[in-house]
């Protein structure tokens, strides 16, 4: 489903190019749940961005559902993301001027879904936030915001879900509940899940754990 071949990522810095990832080889199969762990600055988020087609590697190839992401332009990748990918971010990334339900409807509308509202209501109900659907992000707690973000991620029934430290901004109890919800939904829908974390509680339930160390995959 997701494949990285010889991926390298360098970024310019005042002291010359900085290598963030090098020689990354990774294949993730459909329905698999994979946790990418590593210390801060090890390149976890960069790798996630590359696998999801948010960014391009300096070298190497990334394939998503058989499409070579390095061979298509940004708008092409955007279209592919709209069809195949869902995201959950550490900082929730809800649009502040849209209500909870409008945030969930957004990817559905982008994909031209026939009944975005009905779908959004259903999934909001599934994450237990039907009664908060008209609330703006600033009126929701951190945990509630992340549940909206999860609802949004699953709304389009993506083939792959990328999650970047989804519990990083939450307390332990709320984080646990969010992780549970994420895995539950993932099981229900058979989605491939790639998550970046340094929280063992989140990594443990995954089928596979890969470790990044100074930009290299070590396991």
């Amino acid at each position: 489903m997701v494949e990285a071949r010889g991926v390298e990522k360098r970024v310019p810095s005042p002291e010359g190019d900085l290598t963030i990832l090098s020689a990354v080889e990774l294949a993730i199969f459909a329905g698999e749940t994979v946790a990418v762990i590593g210390a801060s600055g090890s390149g976890k988020s960069t790798l996630l961005g590359l696998l999801a087609g948010l960014d391009l590697p300096t070298k190497g190839i990334v394939r998503l559902d058989g499409h070579d992401l390095t061979a298509i332009d940004e708008d092409g990748r955007a279209a592919l993301r709209g069809q195949l990918v869902g995201f959950v971010f550490q900082s929730f990334q809800l649009l502040p001027s849209l209500t909870a339900i409008e945030n969930v409807m957004l990817p559905l509308e982008l994909a031209g879904n026939a009944q975005p509202k009905r779908r959004a209501e259903a999934i909001l109900e599934r994450v237990g936030l039907q009664h908060r659907r008209r609330h703006y992000p600033r009126q929701l707690s951190g945990g509630e915001q992340q549940r909206v973000a999860i609802a949004r991620a699953f709304a389009t029934q993506p083939k792959v879900l990328f999650a970047d430290e989804p519990t990083g901004n939450l307390d332990q109890q709320t984080g646990g509940a969010i992780a549970e919800l994420l895995f539950e939904l993932n099981r229900e829908r058979g989605t491939t899940l790639v998550l970046v974390t340094h929280d063992p509680c989140l990594a443990d339930p995954c089928n596979r754990v890969v470790r990044l160390d100074n930009g290299r995959l070590t396991s």
């Binding site: 999801a52 948010l54 940004e74 708008d75 955007a78 279209a79 592919l80 993301r81 709209g82 069809q83 990918v85 995201f87 990334q93 649009l95 502040p96 957004l106 990817p107 982008l110 994909a111």
Partner: peptide
């Protein structure tokens, strides 16, 4: 800028 980056990550094209 953040909102647009999010829209782009959700699949919105530059034209959109």
């Amino acid at each position: 800028a953040d909102s647009v980056a999010l829209l782009r990550s959700l699949g919105a094209s530059s034209r959109w």
